[in-house]
């Protein structure tokens, strides 16, 4: 099975987000970027499918942030080919534009399966995987936790997650696009030495995005941090002091028996 994996860079939420002077976006220059978490799972799922049944894994990313490092890390994990989509203009202002640009790069691969993380926390007016499916004219199902090849060729069996730890088992005829929430196994770790080796040995292809920038259909008027509805009463002090205070609170409420 030949698999394409689409990966995105997103601001790291561990770092504080700053609002840009325009007041309608975060200051991307002040943010640090990481691989979108569910895209990391999509890559892992692709590698697991390749290890189980052969084939190739091609990883595709728009040029932004520290994307070269992300792509070489994918190669160090086992990806066979890397494609970086360069953009002459700014990064896409809408997931529709991003989907059109990814479609240009992914379509010629003729992949049996395209895996993308189901969501990214910086997407407001769209979701890349279903938009990509629409742009490529392929069927789509998302919120997937686990994929395996079906016994017949040209299909996969996926688990679609529902509340209450309930899964729907779904059969998907290929080619198709899946929105991955979680892989069958946690994303693998690769040491820095292997990433450095991949930087020397892996071939990174570049293509240029042609799809024009689409104006978003939704305008952000203002971006604000949420006002706390009822902020917690903060307990201060050393670990021992806070622990003693919590124990007192629980004891007073009859929760220590």
């Amino acid at each position: 099975m030949n698999i394409a994996v689409v990966v995105r860079q997103v601001p790291d939420l561990i770092e504080p987000l700053e609002i840009a002077p325009c007041g309608t976006a975060i200051d991307l220059d002040a943010a640090s970027f990481i691989l979108n978490e569910s895209d990391d799972h999509a890559l892992e799922q692709a590698l697991l499918l390749k290890e189980a049944g052969g084939g190739t894994v091609t990883v595709v990313a728009l040029d932004s942030g520290d994307v070269d490092n992300t792509l070489y890390t994918a190669a160090a994990k086992g990806a066979d080919a890397l494609i970086k989509i360069s953009q002459q203009d700014h990064a896409p202002r809408s997931p529709r534009t991003a989907a059109a640009r990814y479609a240009e790069a992914v379509k010629p691969l003729g992949a049996d399966l395209v895996l993308v993380g189901v969501q990214a926390h910086d997407e407001l007016d769209g979701a890349l995987p279903p938009f990509l499916a629409a742009a490529m004219g392929l069927p789509y199902v998302g919120v997937i936790r686990g994929v395996r090849a079906a016994t017949e060729t040209g299909a996969v069996i996926v688990c679609k997650e529902f509340p209450g730890a309930v899964m729907a088992q779904v059969r998907v005829k290929l080619p198709a696009i899946l929105g991955i929430l979680g892989a069958d196994q946690p994303p693998r770790y690769v040491p820095v030495s292997r990433i450095r080796a991949a930087m020397k040995s892996a071939q990174l292809s570049e293509c240029e995005a042609a799809a024009p920038q689409r104006e978003p259909l939704v305008s952000v008027v203002r971006l604000v941090p949420p006002a706390p509805a009822a902020r917690a009463e903060m307990l201060s002090g050393s670990e021992a002091e806070v622990a003693a205070r919590i124990a007192d609170i629980l004891s007073a409420k009859g929760l220590v028996k």
Binding site: L13, L17, L124, S219
Partner: peptide, 19 residues
């Protein structure tokens, strides 16, 4: 006029939707 949770709940986006 729509307010949406954004960036994992760390921001709220106040949006205007015309179509």
């Amino acid at each position: 006029r729509v307010t949406a949770s954004f960036y994992g709940g760390k921001m709220l986006a106040e949006c205007r939707v015309t179509g």
